[in-house]
Every structure is written in C-alpha cells, then in structure tokens.
C-alpha cells in the first residue's frame, strides 16, 4: 500500500541529494543546454551576419574608402538583421511542445523566467555577433580606431535588440507564419539602437569622446531590462490564451 501514497513530503530528516535551481538559473541553464545540444542553430545567425556584410562590397563597391565610410552602418544593420532572424525561434519550440504553458502556470515570477530566456538568447546570438564584428570591420576596412567603439556599442546594443525582439516573438508565437510579421513589428522599434550604435562607431573612427553614446545605449538597455520582460510576459499570456 505504501507505494500508492507516494506524494507525502519527503522525511524532514532526509537531505535531498538534488539541488533545485531557482527559476532564473533553471531557465537559463536549460536554454543554454538546449542550444548546446543543437549546435547548428547556434552558428546560423553568425553565417547570416557574415553573408549580409559580404553583400555590400559586391552590391555597391569594393572601394576601401567607400567601405570604410559605410562600415559602421553596415555592421550594425547586419547585426540587427541577424538578431531579428534568430528571434522567431525564441518561444516557438516552447509553445509547440507545451513547455510555455508550464512556464505560464508556474508560481515562479514570469519576469525572471522571461529575462533568463532573453539572456540565454543574447549569450547565443548577440554576444557571438559582437565577438565576430571586428572580423567584419576588417573586411569592410573599418579604421582600427573604430574597433573598440564597434565592440562596445554592440555589447551594449545587442541585448536591447534581444529584449525588444522578444516582445515581437511573444506576440507572434501563436501564429504559424510569424517570421515576416516579427520584422514588421520590431524593426521600427530597433531604429534608436541602430542610430546610436552606428553613430558610436563613427564617433570612434573620428576620435570623438564616446561616453555620451554609451550612456544613451546603456540607458536604452536599462529601460529595456525593466520594461520589456513585462511586455513579453503579457504578450505570452495573450498568445497562449488565444
């Protein structure tokens, strides 16, 4: 009979050998583990990033002077599009296999879980893009002075892109054809980050002080960290409810 009533709490004297993670670490570790097991998804945005940047010399001109002029904008636009491309999958598999329902029904704060998922997304796209960016800078003849501006601006800007993009992903997760729609919803919202991000790189090239640019990018990131998870959470509840 004892094994038919198994749901009594474990004896208080017994120490559980299993360490249970909090919601933030649980979600973060899980998403990192998931993409570690599906490595191909990891490199796709990076390849896309490289390819977009290759199109500009081919489509416009390989002239080093010209490329150096447009490099800050091109690298930033390419990073923005690569982030956007990877956005659709953020909640989609969770939605399809029922995990998202369990997340929404969990008593753990949705804010933290969402934040962890976005952080995992950034660590797997935004961060590698940032690390790869100097290579693109070299290919596009970005002057060496601009490199630090490029890396720091992407480091501060790409998390904002992930946060804002996640709002679009959450709004469209219930739709079968979410991909193009996300771009429509999210691209206009990316404009401020693009403006200040590429301006910071240009500023670095011309030797301007960069503190102001980074302060603004940092301010946008802080605003995004505070507000975006709320919007993402609300959007997820609406999408799953529908």
């Amino acid at each position: 009979m004892s094994d038919t009533v198994p749901n009594q709490p474990a004896d208080s004297g017994m120490v559980s050998e299993y360490k249970v993670d909090g919601p933030f670490w649980g979600a973060l570790k899980r998403d990192l583990l998931l993409s570690y097991r599906r490595k191909s998804d990891l490199v796709n945005p990076l390849i896309f990033f490289l390819m977009v940047a290759t199109l500009f010399p081919l489509g416009v001109s390989p002239d080093p002077g010209f490329l150096a002029d447009v490099a800050p904008g091109v690298v930033w636009v390419a990073a923005l599009l690569a982030t956007l491309l990877s956005m659709d999958s953020l909640f989609r598999s969770d939605f399809e296999d029922g995990t998202l329902e369990q997340i929404l029904l969990s008593p753990q704060p949705l804010y933290m879980v969402v934040l962890a998922k976005v952080l995992a997304h950034w660590m797997l796209t935004g961060l590698p893009l940032t690390l790869l960016a100097p290579l693109l800078g070299v290919m596009l003849f970005l002057p060496a002075d601009g490199m630090s501006g490029l890396v720091i601006s992407l480091l501060l800007g790409t998390p904002t892109l992930s946060l804002v993009g996640a709002i679009g992903a959450a709004l469209t997760v219930g739709l079968r054809k979410g991909g193009v729609l996300i771009s429509l919803l999210v691209l206009p919202l990316y404009i401020p980050v693009l403006i200040f991000g590429s301006a910071a790189v240009q500023g670095a090239v011309t030797g301007l002080p960069l503190g102001g640019y980074f302060a603004i990018l940092g301010a946008m990131l802080s605003l995004g960290l505070v507000m975006a998870p709320l919007a993402i959470g609300a959007a997820l509840r609406i999408s799953v409810s529908g």
Partner: peptide, 26 residues
Amino acid sequence: ALNSAIENAQTAAQSTAVLALVGLVN
C-alpha cells in the same frame, strides 16, 4: 498587420494593445 494576422478578435485586440503600448513608450 498584427491585428489582421490573428483570427480571434479578443486575442488580436489584446496583442495589438500590447504592441501599441510598447510603441507609445518608444
């Protein structure tokens, strides 16, 4: 675009409202 992509009227209204508010902040 979002409003016309979602078939259920209530879901569409709520999703668009979230997007409009995000836009308003932006």
